[in-house]
């Protein structure tokens, strides 16, 4: 689970290994403080999510914060680098197009989408793990799905429905 989440978030093995390593180190250091009456998986998810955020923060300009209102606006309006979905849709691989679009999602959206879609966490659990309001998590998910739906539509148009 740790590596899968890290890879979903980072989109490449090198960064996924970095994040996974950070997670294990954090677990190693803080297991003494883990309360065994707490939910083990929630605790681990929180560590993974924080490691993802920390990793992105280290790679980004100072002050990067994934869940501020300003960041949210920027997330929705700023496409990431790399080939767009139209370019890839010609390959007819809808799954690949969507994975590519997930990799282009702003980090906050990517994290929330990954947790909800792949890991099956409830929005309330994601909010709790990230220390956010549930409404913020909901908006992140909505924005992520909005982008993916756009990619889906583009792929269908580009490939004439073959994708």
């Amino acid at each position: 689970m740790v590596y899968r989440m890290a890879y979903q978030f980072a989109g490449n093995h090198h960064d996924a290994e970095d994040i996974s390593q950070d997670v294990f180190i954090k677990v190693y250091r803080s297991l003494d403080r883990f309360r065994y009456d707490a939910q083990l998986t929630s605790w681990l998810y929180r560590i993974v999510m924080n490691a993802c955020i920390d990793h992105k923060r280290r790679q980004s300009p100072a002050g990067w914060a994934p869940f501020t209102e300003e960041a949210e606006v920027q997330m929705v309006n700023t496409p990431a680098d790399g080939p767009g979905p139209e370019d890839q849709a010609y390959g007819g691989q809808l799954g690949k197009v969507l994975e590519s679009e997930i990799a282009r999602l702003p980090p906050g959206q990517r994290l929330v989408f990954t947790m909800r879609h792949y890991e099956g966490l409830k929005l309330s659990e994601i909010a709790s793990a990230l220390g956010l309001a549930e409404g913020t998590v909901k908006r992140q998910l909505h924005a992520a799905v909005h982008r993916l739906r756009g990619a889906l539509t583009s792929a269908r148009v580009t490939t004439g429905g073959r994708a």
Binding site: Y3, H13, G95, H117, R149, T153
Partner: peptide
């Protein structure tokens, strides 16, 4: 249609192999 899009997204992503280990 929006709901069907979500199902399509789920199906398409489910068809991709899960990466849960290094190369």
């Amino acid at each position: 249609q929006r709901l069907e899009d979500l199902h399509a997204i789920r199906r398409a992503l489910a068809s991709q192999p899960a990466v849960d280990a290094p190369p």
